[in-house]
């Protein structure tokens, strides 16, 4: 009789082994071309930079990490804060937060609008949000460039209406990056917001009005708390790529207004400081991980609330 249990355990083991074998190709590919290189990069951040890029093999130092925050004067060896890096990190954070807020302000009413359409037209509106979402990021950045440039449609419009008489210089400013990021990441806010608003039970809203709540009170006390998972998900989905943005500042910021992504690229190009680039990348990843942890904790909490 003891063999019955043995059979059961054997079958279970075999099943689990099969599941590992099945997932092996995906895991191996992702390890080789995504996760593994991150570890190599971590090692690189502790190495000595080579004279023409790359690193000097076998030599380790903390210089890469040191120069994320500080710089050493070449003549007198005094150590000061690396203002250029810190201001770029600060700009990245600031622009990402503003982008997240702006997409939320635009995206929340939009998602609500879609969720309150009749069922058969909802899909059309969602589709309209999906199209820009799947359009190449570069193409969208390029399209935004054509709108905000000095001879672009925005300036023409403002001039035609007489609001301004000289074109506004938007291109190659932080405003250009901000416009570009809001435009590009807007669908990433609308879609998760819509997903949670679609499930909103409007009988609860009805109950709110029945209990003397004003429209604003219903919005603040009922709708927003109920769709909070969507707000958090959307904010994370916008914040993370904003922080790592590379293409948008490159196309719209014009090489002067760098963000973290461009600063990293610079170290692998003209800067020829791979350890610093690696350290900056790890730092960027660390900020993202903090944001993700915040999200996971939030998701876990709201999950627990709903049973």
């Amino acid at each position: 009789m003891a063999s019955a249990g043995e059979t059961a355990r054997q079958a279970e083991r075999k099943q689990i082994r099969g599941r590992w074998l099945l997932s092996a190709p995906a895991l191996v590919i992702i390890f080789v071309a995504a996760i593994g290189p991150l570890f190599v990069m971590l090692a690189y951040s502790f190495m000595v930079k080579g004279d023409y890029g790359d690193v000097k093999p076998g030599q380790y130092s903390l210089d890469g990490w040191f120069s994320v925050f500080f710089q050493r004067d070449i003549f007198d060896d005094t150590v000061t804060f690396a203002d250029a890096h810190l201001s770029i990190i600060w700009r990245s954070l600031r622009l990402s937060v503003i982008t997240t807020l702006a997409t939320l302000v635009l995206g929340f009413p939009t998602a609500y609008f879609i969720a309150t359409r009749p069922r058969h037209t909802r899909e059309v509106w969602v589709f309209l949000v999906t199209i820009p979402f799947w359009t190449n990021l570069l193409i969208r950045a390029f399209a935004m460039q054509q709108v905000i440039r000095n001879e672009g449609i925005l300036n023409s419009l403002l001039r035609a209406t007489g609001i301004i008489d000289q074109p506004l210089q938007i291109m190659y400013t932080d405003w250009a990056i901000l416009f570009g990021m809001v435009y590009v990441y807007l669908p990433l806010m609308v879609l998760p917001l819509y997903a949670s608003m679609e499930k909103l039970d409007f009988r609860l809203v009805e109950a709110g009005y029945d209990l003397y709540a004003s429209r604003l009170a219903v919005l603040r006390r009922i709708i927003i708390p109920l769709v909070k998972p969507g707000i958090v998900a959307g904010s994370i989905l916008v914040f993370i790529p904003s922080l790592g943005a590379y293409v948008i500042p490159r196309v719209l910021g014009g090489g002067k207004n760098l963000m973290l992504g461009n600063l990293i690229e610079l170290q692998f190009g003209a800067g020829r400081n791979w350890p610093l680039g690696a350290a900056l990348s790890i730092a960027l990843m660390a900020i993202v991980m903090v944001a993700l942890l915040f999200y996971v904790r939030n998701a876990a909490r709201s999950g627990a609330q709903h049973g």
């Binding site: 997932s23 995906a26 895991l27 992702i30 071309a33 995504a34 996760i35 290189p37 991150l38 190599v40 990069m41 690189y44 993370i240 790529p241 922080l243 790592g244 590379y246 973290l260 992504g261 990293i264 690229e265 692998f268 791979w274 680039g277 690696a278 990348s281 790890i282 960027l284 990843m285 993202v288 991980m289 993700l292």
Partner: peptide
């Protein structure tokens, strides 16, 4: 499996470059 979605593209890009 979801890791590539979690890491900013630029980070993966330079890691792959290395």
């Amino acid at each position: 499996i979801n890791q590539p979605l979690m890491v900013p593209e630029i980070v993966t890009a330079v890691a792959l470059l290395i």
